[in-house]
């Protein structure tokens, strides 16, 4: 994966000026080639201005993922780290078609088609946040698997709380909020038979250092780790800690199911007692959230059903 693009990004990550001449010598290619690569990185959305007489620079530098550090931290996983990919979950879903050897961890500096529920765009600017997916085989029957999404919400909420973040909450089923603003989103995809085994792909987007340029496209209140976390962790550290916590969560869930996470989930319940509008089976209902059931369904006031999925808008 040590392409010329990647080598050039590594050079520029320090935030210093680099002349075309110097880069050309260091990387052993012509200045014209350097110019072309810089241009293609700019086309991918990297802000690389050139200043006459000084050279190229990425202002403030970049917090790149340390590929070796992450790979060595997880010898039991098949680790794939990309400069750019459509979506880390797309990669894992592709891998799911291959014979299973070991779980796959995929990270990317940038996603060109980062997605959320119902194919909504998940802003994934270069070297800014965590875009992580994990492919795992599971023997848990599909009918009992859905509760896992709530457990993963707890996983991220706990990680943030342990790192000193205050006012962490989970909006049903598993969006993670800090101070009423969204910091992480989870999209889980599963393929397989009703009775298992099945392939499970957990995709997590965690805002670490969201640049203003990308944030203007986000259509809801958001925050990031840089803003709310009292300790400064690199993206590499976030990636490693998040993966550890996620693997632990999957392990506990496979043994004990959602039951092991219900109490914690309730402590983080963002919607409890709040007025909201739900859209369910094409009908709109103004109601009040009343916690969750043992299966993780949302209880809502005066409704003949418990909610399994649907749009929720706070009033």
């Amino acid at each position: 994966m040590q392409t010329l693009h990647h080598k050039l990004i590594e050079q520029l990550a320090d935030g210093q000026f680099h002349s075309g001449e110097g880069l050309s010598q260091k990387l052993g290619v012509s200045r014209t080639r350097i110019h072309h690569v810089v241009q293609s990185l700019r086309n991918k959305g990297l802000p690389i201005p050139a200043v006459k007489g000084k050279g190229y620079r990425i202002f403030d530098g970049m917090d790149l993922l340390q590929v070796e550090t992450i790979t060595q931290a997880f010898p039991d996983l098949d680790v794939a780290i990309f400069d750019s990919c459509t979506s880390t979950s797309d990669y894992c879903l592709e891998q799911a078609k291959e014979p299973f050897v070991k779980p796959v961890l995929c990270l990317a500096e940038q996603q060109t088609k980062g997605r959320g529920r119902q194919a909504r765009v998940w802003q994934s600017p270069f070297a800014a946040n965590i875009y992580l997916s994990l492919l795992q085989r599971t023997d848990t029957p599909l009918s009992q698997l859905a509760g896992l999404t709530l457990a993963i919400g707890v996983c991220i909420a706990e990680l943030l709380t342990q790192t000193g973040v205050k006012d962490v909450a989970i909006k049903w089923p598993n969006d993670v909020y800090v101070g009423g603003k969204k910091i992480a989103g989870i999209l889980t995809e599963v393929e397989g038979d009703a009775l298992g085994p099945s392939s499970l792909v957990v995709g997590i987007g965690l805002n670490v250092n969201m640049p203003a340029a990308a944030s203007q496209y986000i259509d809801q209140a958001w925050t990031d780790c840089r803003t709310v976390c009292p300790v400064k962790l690199s993206r590499t550290q976030w990636a490693i800690q998040l993966t550890r916590q996620l693997l632990h969560t999957l392990e506990v869930f496979s043994q004990y199911g959602l039951a092991a996470f219900l109490t914690k989930w309730q402590e983080y319940d963002y919607l409890q007692g709040k007025k909201l509008t739900v859209v369910h089976a094409g009908e709109q209902l103004n109601t009040v959230a009343q916690g969750i059931t043992e299966q993780g369904y949302l209880r809502i006031k005066d409704a003949p059903y418990k909610l399994l999925s649907g749009e929720i808008v706070l009033l």
């Binding site: 529920r117 599909l142 698997l145 859905a146 509760g147 896992l148 999404t149 709530l150 049903w172 089923p173 598993n174 989870i186 999209l187 889980t188 995809e189 599963v190 393929e191 993780g296 369904y297 399994l308 999925s309």
Partner: peptide, 11 residues
């Protein structure tokens, strides 16, 4: 088919 933001493509 979706349940609690877990999506299962039916093939």
């Amino acid at each position: 088919v979706e349940a609690m933001k877990m999506f299962n493509p039916i093939e």
